[in-house]
Design a protein around this nucleic acid. Sequence first.
DNA 1: ACCCAGGGTCATA
DNA 2: TATGACCATGGG
Length: 221
Amino acid sequence: MQASNKKISRLYLGLYKNYGPQSWWPANTSFEVMIGAILTQNTAWTNVEKAIANLKQAKALNSSAILKLSDETLASLIRPSGYFNVKTKRLKALCQWYEKQGGFKNLDKLNTETLRHELLSVHGVGLETADDILLYAFKRPVFVIDTYTRRLFSRLDFITGNEKYDVLREMVEDALENNTQHMNEFHALIVKHAKDFCKSNPDCKQCPVLKRCHYNRREDI
DNA sequence: ACCCAGGGTCATA
DNA sequence: TATGACCATGGG
């Protein structure tokens, strides 16, 4: 069974009514979004905040400064975010690519498909990280599929769970009518809901937020 | 002590 | 194409 657009948009509205706007991504600049997208890979955001604070204090929240740091120094700064040796290489690869491409302004001239392809060519940037950057740094109408989204959609029987990443992404993009702001909020709301509620109670039938989405309507069955 | 967190790469079959 | 090992800190 495939989720209808109506069910997906209803879920979005239900979450929005309950939690309100999330105003993501928690960062001051688009470059900080990109760094955070690498650092948060399979890592709790609270740990990423510590690593970003260290980079800020070292005045190393720009590509040229990061590239000047030794691997050892950079690794020590991002240590709290875990996988620090892996992420050191990924951050440097991203910064090298960023400078080679002429920075944000030049990259922003590319169409979304080309920019995604470019991002995916960077070592350490996978499907989700690329879409994080496309949506939250470049404001492109792209929906981010993360583990929370797959889990929630599976629990709601929107999906079987083994759909390809791009199939799910396009499913949501279609349901939200390619509206960038909606995709921004929806992804953030799913994360918010996962942290606030799902973690302590994974049973969707007991979830007061999802009841507002009226999943017991006939057209959903 | 154990489990997981806003994934991705690489080797292997 | 699809699994599995690996990376590593910090909070519950």
